[in-house]
Deep mutational scan, measured.
Amino acid sequence: HSHMSHTQVIELERKFSHQKYLSAPERAHLAKNLKLTETQVKIWFQNRRYKTKRKQLSSEL
């Protein structure tokens, strides 16, 4: 499990705020920019979407 830097997370968050789903080319581009693997980016987005979904569910209770 590799640790992401604060800067990388900020960039991922910024991208996520604009779009929740990335196409393969977008993911490849973002990964390259942030010096991450595409898998890391993919998993981060999956986890981030899951967290957002959970938060929405709990706020509706």
Score class of each variant (00 low, 15 high):
residue 46 Q to V: 06
residue 56 Q to P: 10
residue 54 R to Y: 08
residue 43 I to H: 09
residue 55 K to M: 12
residue 12 L to R: 00
residue 31 A to S: 04
residue 58 S to T: 12
residue 36 L to Y: 03
residue 11 E to L: 09
residue 53 K to C: 15
residue 25 P to W: 11
residue 25 P to Y: 11
residue 5 S to Y: 07
residue 6 H to L: 09
residue 10 I to H: 12
residue 25 P to M: 14
residue 14 R to E: 07
residue 21 Y to P: 01
residue 25 P to K: 13
residue 50 Y to C: 15
residue 37 T to P: 03
residue 34 L to T: 03
residue 6 H to F: 07
residue 18 H to I: 11
residue 55 K to P: 10
residue 34 L to E: 01
residue 58 S to C: 15
residue 30 L to N: 00
residue 29 H to Q: 13
residue 49 R to I: 06
residue 2 S to R: 11
residue 7 T to F: 15
residue 57 L to R: 09
residue 27 R to D: 01
residue 41 V to Y: 01
residue 27 R to H: 03
residue 35 K to P: 00
residue 48 R to I: 10
residue 54 R to I: 10
residue 40 Q to C: 09
residue 14 R to P: 02
residue 58 S to P: 15
residue 21 Y to I: 04
residue 43 I to R: 09
residue 24 A to Y: 14
residue 33 N to K: 15
residue 40 Q to A: 06
residue 8 Q to N: 02
residue 22 L to W: 02
residue 20 K to C: 15
residue 20 K to P: 12
residue 33 N to W: 14
residue 27 R to I: 15
residue 23 S to L: 02
residue 6 H to V: 10
residue 16 F to C: 07
residue 29 H to L: 14
residue 47 N to T: 09
residue 1 H to P: 08
residue 6 H to N: 08
residue 56 Q to A: 09
residue 23 S to R: 04
residue 3 H to Q: 12
residue 17 S to F: 14
residue 45 F to I: 03
residue 25 P to R: 11
residue 48 R to G: 04
residue 51 K to R: 13
residue 45 F to N: 00
residue 2 S to Y: 13
residue 8 Q to L: 04
residue 51 K to I: 13
residue 25 P to A: 15
residue 10 I to K: 11
residue 21 Y to T: 04
residue 39 T to Q: 12
residue 60 E to A: 07
residue 32 K to S: 08
residue 20 K to S: 07
residue 43 I to A: 06
residue 6 H to A: 12
residue 43 I to G: 04
residue 36 L to A: 01
residue 5 S to D: 06
residue 28 A to E: 08
residue 21 Y to G: 02
residue 32 K to P: 01
residue 41 V to I: 12
residue 28 A to W: 05
residue 19 Q to W: 07
residue 15 K to C: 15
residue 57 L to G: 13
residue 37 T to F: 03
residue 44 W to F: 04
residue 6 H to C: 15
residue 61 L to R: 08
residue 53 K to A: 12
residue 55 K to E: 14
residue 26 E to R: 02
residue 60 E to P: 05
residue 18 H to R: 10
residue 20 K to N: 09
residue 24 A to T: 07
residue 17 S to H: 13
residue 15 K to N: 05
residue 22 L to N: 00
residue 6 H to G: 05
residue 29 H to Y: 09
residue 14 R to N: 06
residue 16 F to E: 02
residue 51 K to V: 10
residue 57 L to D: 13
residue 12 L to A: 01
residue 22 L to G: 00
residue 24 A to F: 11
residue 51 K to F: 09
residue 2 S to T: 12
residue 47 N to K: 12
residue 47 N to C: 15
residue 16 F to S: 02
residue 7 T to I: 08
residue 61 L to H: 13
residue 20 K to H: 08
residue 13 E to Q: 06
residue 8 Q to K: 05
residue 19 Q to F: 05
residue 41 V to Q: 00
residue 61 L to D: 14
residue 59 S to P: 14
residue 9 V to I: 13
residue 36 L to V: 03
residue 40 Q to P: 00
residue 9 V to S: 04
residue 51 K to Q: 14
residue 29 H to A: 13
residue 44 W to R: 01
residue 43 I to D: 08
residue 59 S to D: 15
residue 35 K to F: 12
residue 19 Q to S: 10
residue 54 R to H: 13
residue 15 K to A: 15
residue 42 K to T: 06
residue 11 E to I: 06
residue 15 K to S: 08
residue 38 E to L: 06
residue 45 F to C: 04
residue 14 R to H: 11
residue 33 N to M: 15
residue 52 T to V: 12
residue 39 T to A: 11
residue 9 V to T: 09
residue 54 R to K: 14
residue 56 Q to K: 11
residue 41 V to G: 00
residue 30 L to M: 06
residue 11 E to V: 07
residue 49 R to W: 04
residue 60 E to T: 04
residue 9 V to P: 01
residue 42 K to Y: 08
residue 29 H to P: 00
residue 18 H to L: 09
residue 35 K to M: 12
residue 32 K to F: 06
residue 46 Q to C: 11
residue 54 R to G: 12
residue 55 K to D: 13
residue 45 F to K: 00
residue 53 K to T: 07
residue 9 V to A: 07
residue 21 Y to D: 03
residue 43 I to W: 06
residue 36 L to R: 00
residue 31 A to V: 00
residue 2 S to E: 09
residue 2 S to M: 11
residue 31 A to T: 02
residue 19 Q to C: 15
residue 14 R to K: 12
residue 12 L to K: 01
residue 56 Q to H: 14
residue 12 L to W: 02
residue 55 K to T: 11
residue 32 K to Q: 10
residue 32 K to A: 10
residue 39 T to W: 14
residue 38 E to M: 05
residue 46 Q to A: 13
residue 32 K to W: 06
residue 42 K to V: 05
residue 34 L to Q: 00
